[in-house]
């Protein structure tokens, strides 16, 4: 392991108006032949865009799925705004999975109404505006769309919510470079300042410019939690360069 890596202590919980939005305490997830997460502890404050970075199989998607309640932890606990994952946390968490999860038979219009029905914080006007900007017609059925277009629709639906915590698992991996910039602008301009955005991605160079903080995961262990400014000042290099150095094959 690179000597430059530091296992930093989790950011201590702060009471009052800066209470952490997400706290993981000694979180572990064990599969029959694999330890996906190993005693992970972290605390994230609202108002931050956080990059969840790591090589393939490092546990990024596992962590995101645990926060969403789609996996059951082997040990440890997760709280979102002080609550365990459940219907109340799902009402304040907006999740973009790394695969298409939308029903293929639905049209974009039907999906807009679906999200508006279930999520009180969904802004249908904002979603319509973003769809128009990307030339996606509301009458199109999902099954007639290309993979990239489906991903754009999913992202638009996710970012049109005024959630407290956004979990974006590979939001720009499947879209063209021109759309990537639009998506990143959308993320910055559409999340509210008391929300936290966690972005898991391999395309670090593209998203580095919007990140406030990074979490480096390796083999299920949190090996670094640091602000982007600290990395640039102390390490004297970009996050992308540090990542390539730390996770050199």
């Amino acid at each position: 392991m690179n000597e430059q890596l530091e296992q930093t202590a989790p950011i201590p919980q702060v009471q009052g108006e800066h209470a952490p939005i997400l706290v993981c305490e000694h979180l572990s997830k064990f599969y029959p032949q694999c330890l996906a997460l190993n005693d992970l502890s972290l605390s994230l404050q609202p108002g931050r865009i956080v990059g969840l970075l790591g090589p393939n199989g490092s546990g990024k998607t596992t962590l995101i799925k645990l926060i969403n309640g789609l996996l059951t932890p082997t040990s440890g606990q997760i709280t979102i705004s002080g609550m365990k994952p459940g219907p109340q946390t799902k009402a304040i968490v907006s999740y973009l999975p790394d695969r298409n999860s939308l029903p293929e038979w639905m049209t974009t219009e039907e999906l807009l109404h679906f999200f508006a029905d279930f999520y009180a914080d969904f802004d249908i006007g904002k979603a319509r505006e973003m769809l128009q900007h990307l030339h996606i017609t509301e009458k199109m059925r999902l099954k007639t769309m290309s993979k990239g277009t489906k991903e754009k629709v999913q992202l638009i639906l996710t970012m049109s919510r005024a959630a407290k915590l956004y979990l974006l698992d590979e939001p720009i991996g499947g879209v063209d470079p021109a759309a990537r910039d639009y998506i990143l602008e959308t993320i910055i301009s559409n999340y509210s300042k008391d929300a936290c955005v966690i972005i898991s991605t391999h395309l670090i160079a593209d998203i580095e410019k919007i990140l406030d903080e990074v979490l480096f995961l390796n083999s299920g262990v949190l090996v670094m939690q640091s602000s982007v400014d600290d990395i640039r000042e102390k390490e004297g290099k970009s996050v992308d360069a540090l990542f390539r150095e730390v996770f050199r094959c």
Partner: peptide, 13 residues
Amino acid sequence: GHEGYLSLTLPTT
């Protein structure tokens, strides 16, 4: 299945 990523993240029990 894959739709579970949507269904089971809805604010429902």
